[in-house]
Design a protein around this nucleic acid. Structure first.
Lengths: 291, 291
DNA sequence: CATAACACCTGACTTTAGTCAGATAATTTT
DNA sequence: AAAATTATCTGACTAAAGTCAGGTGTTATG
């Protein structure tokens, strides 16, 4: 009988292998070998640096060259030397190439759409997929400083507010709290950092500058699918590093009693509890850390 | 920004593609081309019919033949004509082949184990994987009549009891209920049917024969990862078909008020509510259906 | 019982993927 | 300014995968 964890894992593995295989096969339907199709798709997804594509697809430089020549002969791509370093070449899609790329995208998208559409609980399926993708891709998280008004940041914040509303006694309305001004979370006053996993923002934290001799940590959030991976701590480290670089010596934060994991993290990482320092209605705990 | 459902799906797809690719690559470490390794693994997993392997792996018959010859030359497999139809050949691992297969299995298992071990919530990860695997494999569910004492059946029943205990007011103890005798759920008195998805039992139902002029439907269960796919209904249909074949004309069942989806299903599929017909402490509703 | 259908095999290919040793030209280092 | 390093390309390979047209022996069918 095959019910132990490893058997379940491998059942999953078989299921996705055949799904992946089927997609590869459908890609061949456009009459181009898979290698060329993969290069075309890498270029279409914005990888313009030949070395980056080679690295991403794990190709030999000779093979890569030949695949590029093939795509060039089909008039799907154009290469030219890099302006900054003429040894390198950059590559971009032609109009014809963009059309071909769009056709490949449509194949992938249709597959995804069909599978989601026929599932009774697409949200649950997507949550499961996020969890698996974060688990498989955990070596590939990137920390990026972004504008708090960017899409990635807004996505994180929106999820964060939803979660607060769910967890706080009596819910949470962002309007009743002191919503930080975006300019306070952009250098040189502050910073806003997101963790990305292959294009999906799965966590964020804000460093909000004030004129009171300290900066505040705000909006620490990790997607449910990525919890327990130590990302919150790494985000906090990144925020502290940003603060040091901006010459900020003292950090403060406030938090609600419902956010127990966060409170435990603060206590473990050198924060000390202090008296209430604002009149925001939501927080129950107040912390300070000197850098 | 890439946050719509399709983008999330495709992020998942990329993550598992690179995982699958990495596993393929590790398979090459044993010095055998991937094609041969895949055939060897298919045989090791019990596929002894050449046509079945060819079909499963999508191989041309010529290519398949050559791969088999190669494995035969390595003394990993043995083929002989099928006793029933001498055109067909059946294939089996030799002792050396079993050792080699075990080595491949270890590669897969170690990979699975390592990934599960470093995850903070392996149970949540496995649940997510089950959900995804059921969604991807939904064309490949099989309904099998099994002995209620088999591993597959016992797995389903164990999960069923856990769920009842969670959902019933005051919990559920199997000992307090009239646990059906296994012989009553085996032909010719009754039947026990499981839904399998690629080796994993994800649902079950029992048809329990009695000496009172009717048979009872018992233990209808669907794994959380496979709900909403219409499997409960298909299981009930299968149970009814089994009853007809056994010459049973009347079916009864009892159920608890907490199992709302089941009750809705019974009402929708021709069952009529009747008076209590037993003194089991758990059920609140009683149904009958004439075939 | 002839013939069609079937399962598998063999030989003769082609295509794709991948490797490796230079060649070329640009950039960095000493 | 010479030497070393780097990024890409070309040519000459090999291995693997996949295709296709027969061929052999077996089984099903009219």
């Amino acid at each position: 009988m095959t019910l132990d964890p490893i058997a379940r894992f491998r059942r999953f593995s078989r299921a996705v292998t055949s799904e992946v295989g089927a997609l590869d096969h459908s890609f061949l339907g456009r009459g181009r070998p898979l290698g060329s199709a993969r290069v075309l798709n890498a270029i279409g997804h914005g990888r313009g640096d030949i070395a980056a594509i080679r690295d991403y697809l794990g190709l030999d430089s000779g093979l890569m060259s030949r695949l590029l020549r093939g795509l060039e002969e089909e008039h799907l791509i154009e290469t030219r030397p890099d302006a900054a370093d003429a040894r390198r070449r950059v590559v971009a899609l032609t109009g014809k190439g963009r059309a071909e790329f769009a056709a490949y995208e449509a194949l992938s998208n249709n597959r995804a759409e069909a599978l989601l559409a026929r599932h009774p609980r697409p949200e649950a399926l997507l949550d499961a997929m996020d969890l698996v993708a974060s688990a498989l891709g955990r070596d590939r998280f990137t920390f990026e400083t972004v504008d708090p008004r960017s899409d990635a940041a807004r996505h994180g914040l929106a999820r964060y507010y939803v979660e607060l509303d769910r967890r706080f006694d009596g819910g949470f309305e962002v309007g009743r709290s002191a919503d930080p001004d975006a300019m306070d979370m952009i250098a040189p006053r502050g910073s806003f950092i997101v963790v990305m996993s292959d294009g999906l923002p799965i966590g964020c934290v804000g460093l909000k500058g004030t004129d009171k001799g300290y900066a505040e940590i705000k909006r620490l959030w990790i997607a449910p699918s990525a919890r327990g991976l130590g990302l919150a701590r790494r985000l906090m480290d990144a925020a502290e590093a940003a603060a040091r670089q901006l010459g900020i010596a003292t950090l403060r934060l406030d938090t609600n009693k419902a956010l127990t994991e966060a409170i435990a993290l603060y206590r473990k990482t050198g924060w000390t509890e202090i008296d209430r320092f604002n009149d925001d209605p939501y927080p129950d705990f107040f912390f300070e850390k000197r850098l």
